[in-house]
Design a protein around this nucleic acid. Structure first.
Length: 516
RNA sequence: CGGGGAGUAGCGCAGCCUGGUAGCGCAUCUGCUUUGGGAGCAGAGGGUCGUAGGUUCGAAUCCUAUCUCCCCGACCA
């Protein structure tokens, strides 16, 4: 019997031991973000912000391709703007940060306090979302049917005073893009809502390698004030669902509140139909919990701030100069390559320090390809390649593969594209294996999500789509099991059974899951 | 916001019960020796003990308030 070699992982907690601790460990060890000292707010560090910048760039291209133009609207929204849409204000009232003063004065204890003399006549809300303020602008900008559709987007920060926060997943302040559009009729607005949803689906799957299920949310999960809300739902490695993006058809409610009207071809003043859609820094949390492993993050190549890192094995001797020259030539060759239609992002890490120590730092950050180059490699025209998604070999050592420099440079872009594909396939296979479709009653549902079951996935089940009080009852029943309805999956099989909640004939299939 | 836990060096922690002027491991710095792969030895630097009050001759330690984080709930585009 040979003794099984044990892998010495880069993190000190595994997903299996404690998923919540593991998540935080990845964020700390990959240097994505850290606590700020301000409740629920995080400092996003270079590697984490670099990923966000990649998301911004690639999403922004898609947004602009759809003819949507970027704008910027104020951070502060007059309180009265919210009062105009009843459901909307009710949905957000409990989590709004409000500015009430514009000046500080010394307080009796030697500190500072808001000057009672400097109270604002009308409080300003720090935007939790911008429907109201953008609606006010749309009302000014839209006069005629010729002005439609009006397609706007902004990249911004928003604030929601959440009771319980988690880095990237739910922070008091977060970064996002919010698209806001106005249309002549429901059909056009709905088409835009679904276009944005599809944009998010393809972005998640093709760029983040994060498989998602799209579909409309049930009535109780709609955005406050929306007529219909669609989401993309991703399964994290602990089986929980993460709503990674939403797209809303808002009907004419917001148009009515803000006075967004146009004169139609018959000369009638007509209300616009509006939409809004957004994705946020939460997506980074999704990437972590989709692709992270017990050695840190595995950053999808398309959003990796650096795709290839070259680590020279410096020896503090005369050989270093030649070694660095070899590495620099290699870096320049790689930087000329293209992957995913863009230049390859490659970093030569010449910082002082042992290559092995730097290696584990990059492993934890999840750089897709790490090259370690020693003097013998340089002399022989070789490179040693470590693929982050195939980190360990059978001997429980870092799985370096030696090849010639020319061979690697020629294959680098294909390799990056292969890693992207491999990450997606791994995530999709895992997700598909964790969706069950044979649950037909509440006992079966409870059994699937039994307390002692580790990381249960999702249940796709039939229901009769109750509304109002009947829906509330279903939501209560699910809540008792700590479950939520995620959405009605697009493309699910038609219903052919009985709703386990109401006993009525089922009309569609829904996804039921624990969620973030 | 309710219940529980925690804030002491960059990170992880001990010390607190029983008050006496701050310690360990890793990391960092310096030197030497090593090194085709997550090095060894020796030495060194680094802390208003979350913050603000209080008790006391004396507070990391006791008391009060407050801030922040983690876990479980409630809430959650």
């Amino acid at each position: 019997m040979t003794k099984q070699p044990t892998i010495k992982h880069a993190l000190n907690v595994t997903r299996d031991e404690d998923f919540a601790q593991w998540y935080q460990s990845v964020i700390a060890e990959a240097e994505l973000a850290e606590e700020s000292g301000v409740r629920g707010c995080m400092v996003i560090k270079p590697w984490g912000y670099g990923i966000w910048e990649r998301i911004q760039k690639l999403m922004d291209e898609r947004i602009k391709e759809a003819g949507v133009e970027n704008c910027y609207f104020p951070l502060f929204i007059p309180l009265s703007y919210f009062a105009k849409e009843a459901d909307h204000v009710e949905g957000f009232a409990k989590e709004m940060a409000v500015v009430t003063h514009h000046r500080l004065i010394a307080d009796p204890k030697g500190g500072l306090m808001p000057d009672p003399e400097a109270k604002l006549e009308e409080p300003l809300v720090v935007r939790p979302t911008s429907e109201t303020v953008i609606g006010a602008a749309m009302a000014r900008w839209i006069q005629s049917w010729r002005d439609l559709p009006l397609l706007t987007n902004q990249w911004a920060n928003v604030v929601r005073w959440e009771m319980r926060t988690r880095m990237f997943l739910r922070t008091s302040e977060f970064l996002w893009q919010e698209g806001h559009t106005a249309h002549a009729d429901e059909a056009d607005a709905m088409a835009e809502t679904l276009r944005a949803l599809e944009m998010y689906r393809s972005f998640s799957e093709d760029v983040l390698a994060m498989p998602v299920i799209t579909g409309p949310k049930p009535e109780n999960e709609r955005f406050p004030g929306a007529v219909a809300t669609y989401s993309i739902e991703a399964m994290m490695q602990d089986g929980k669902a993460l709503q990674a993006g939403t797209s809303h058809y808002l009907g004419t409610g917001f148009a009515e509140a803000a006075g967004i009207r146009y004169q139609d071809k018959e000369g009638q003043q007509t209300l616009c139909h509006t939409t809004s859609w957004g994705v946020s820094t939460r997506m980074i949390g999704g990437v972590i919990m989709t692709h992270g492993d017990d050695d840190g993050l595995r950053t999808p190549p398309q959003v990796a701030p650096q795709q290839i890192v070259i680590l020279p094995m410096l020896r503090d001797n005369d050989g270093d100069e030649a070694l660095l020259a070899y590495c620099e030539a290699l870096r320049a060759d790689l930087a000329k390559q293209s992957a995913f239609g863009e230049r390859v992002r490659v970093l030569l890490d010449k910082r002082p320090g042992k290559a092995t120590q730097k290696r584990w730092a990059w492993v934890k950050k999840g750089v897709p390809l790490i090259l370690e180059i020693g003097g013998r490699d340089a002399e022989g025209g070789q490179v040693s390649v470590l693929r982050r998604d195939k980190l360990w070999n059978d001997a429980a050592k870092a799985n370096f593969v030696a090849m010639s420099q020319g061979e690697f440079v020629a294959a680098a872009s294909a390799e990056l594209e292969d890693i992207e594909r491999a990450l997606f396939e791994e995530a999709r296979t895992r997700r598909d294996a964790q969706i069950v479709r044979d649950v037909t009653d509440l006992d079966g549902l409870a059994a699937y999500f039994a307390e002692d079951r580790k990381f249960p996935g999702w249940v796709e089940m039939q229901w009769s789509r109750p509304t109002g009080d009947a829906l509330d009852k279903v939501v209560e029943q699910l809540k008792a099991l700590k479950l939520t309805i995620r959405n009605t999956p697009t493309g699910a099989a038609p219903a052919d059974g009985t709703c386990p909640f109401t006993g009525d004939p089922a009309v569609e299939r829904i996804l039921v899951a624990r969620s973030y």
